[in-house]
Design a protein around this nucleic acid. Sequence first.
DNA 1: ATACCGACCTGTCAGC
DNA 2: TGCTGACAGGTCGGTA
Length: 291
Amino acid sequence: MPELPEVETIVRGLHTRVAGDAVESVWIGSRPQPLKSPAGVIARTLEGKQIVRVHRAGKHIVFDLEGATGASQPKKGGRGVRGQPRQAASLRQSAQWIVHLGMTGRLVVCDAALEIAKHTHLIAKLASGRELRFIDPRMFGKLSVHAGGFDPGGVEPLEVSEAQFIALFRGRKTPIKSALLNQKLLRGVGNIYADESLFRAGIRPRRRAAAITREQLGKLHRTVREVLREAIALGGSSISDYVDADGEEGFFQLQHRVYGREGEPCLVCRTAIRRIVLAGRSSHYCSKCQK
DNA sequence: ATACCGACCTGTCAGC
DNA sequence: TGCTGACAGGTCGGTA
């Protein structure tokens, strides 16, 4: 479902709503597919921690957590652990909770009384009384916890310089669209924004990356950032069921020039937009405007 | 190393 | 009405 602009929109909404709140307890469902860390480790890492910040790394949502060591243990009757001196316990311990939404994942902040939706895999009870829930029908999403400094690899498309960008594709014989989708190169660009960026740059998706001139790559560098920025400004693209953390739909789908427009006239030259399958993904382009 | 291809899952929609 | 197949915003591992 979500690419960089959708994740960015979600992250901004989540940060506003839950930064400063704390996780009191965690419930995890019985389906193991979404869990990249063991359920017990995820629960123990989240419980008792304060959510300091919610941000984005590529398509990953990162919750920065802080809390006292052992804060998840006590509550009932226990005075610390066997009366040991708890020097370490007074230290602030930081951790990160990483959420990848896959195709259909959603994170919602809601009242605890709200009915639990089908395909809910994790519920974090917050100190404020609300709940943060992870819902994902297809279970392509992933949940994990990390000690800190999480780095998914690749460079942020909105931060990369033109020279860096051009260097990413040097010598690559793979089709340019496959390279754009490779998260180890650029992180955050997905199927929609790859198609839209290539259209605006006038480059066909199947062109070999290494065969594209520096000038054209420079143009692609500009169009990728332009498309992502415009999409973020409009709250992302809502194709079927995507909504942000506040339940609002995005509006960038109204700006799509090729994605999902097979057979419709190119907005520039009226040529019918073509759809091909490349690396298993639908790819849309105008055969006249893109070479 | 690189590049296709199916697999992973459920839901929806078009067509018969 | 219901069945079947195609398709979906993402990634991973196997195979050539």
